[in-house]
Amino acid sequence: MSDTRTIVLECLRYHPERDEAPYHQRFEVPFTPEMSVLEGLQYIKDHLDGSLTFRWSCRMAVCGNCGCMVNGEPVLSCQVFLRDYHPGCVRVEPLDHFPIQRDLAVDPSDFLDKLAQVAPYLIPDPVRTPEDGPHRQTPQQMQDYLDTSACINCLLCYAACPQYGLKADFLGPAALALAHRYNADSRDAGRARRMEVMNSDAGVWGCTLVGRCSEVCPKGVDPAGAINRNKPAAALDTLRRLLQSGRTCTS
């Protein structure tokens, strides 16, 4: 094929049973213009080194599994193309700020624990049953949370957030954006429950508005916006608690 060229993929390797520390390994990969970085990795796995480990599923920027650092940028590897890096080399590394499990696969457990803390589901009040029928809302009410509901849990925002890397207990961009997503939903009544977590040391105040999370998000979620829009509400919550505790002290 005339439009086949060759590019170097430099992958970070780490096999815990064998390696003391990660190292880079270079692979020469033939590619055609429509090949994504993910397809380059798949070529390596199929033809050059079957032990290369990485995650993927949909190949169409939907499942959020294939996130990795490409030349230092957090990206979905199925969404970036080898042609755009040629003739340079493509350095592929696991997402920053997460423990490396094996080669390009990171351990996302920390994010999953934090996500569970913000109760990322509708908490209606009163509790509804299927007999109550559909829980309706207007298109305008849907607009209030639609952007944030696009999150695919790809973790690119965590890899772009230095605060998450520096402060281990910070809930981080996507978990807080998803808390906002449910708070902003007219069918939800769980705001007070989520506020306890959002207004804690690990919550919205951990964000110093670096803003990179919103820049790298492949779904236009704008986690930085979602977090910072909750700071006034969190401050009011602190004030309310102070007033309440003052009242209990004097009574």
Binding site: P16, E17, P22, D96, Q101, D107, P162, L166, G211, R212
Partner: peptide, 19 residues
Amino acid sequence: STRPYIRSMKGWWRRHPAY
């Protein structure tokens, strides 16, 4: 993996102009 590798944050500001 029973031994996940944790990377250091040393010099994190050097990783991107935005930082």
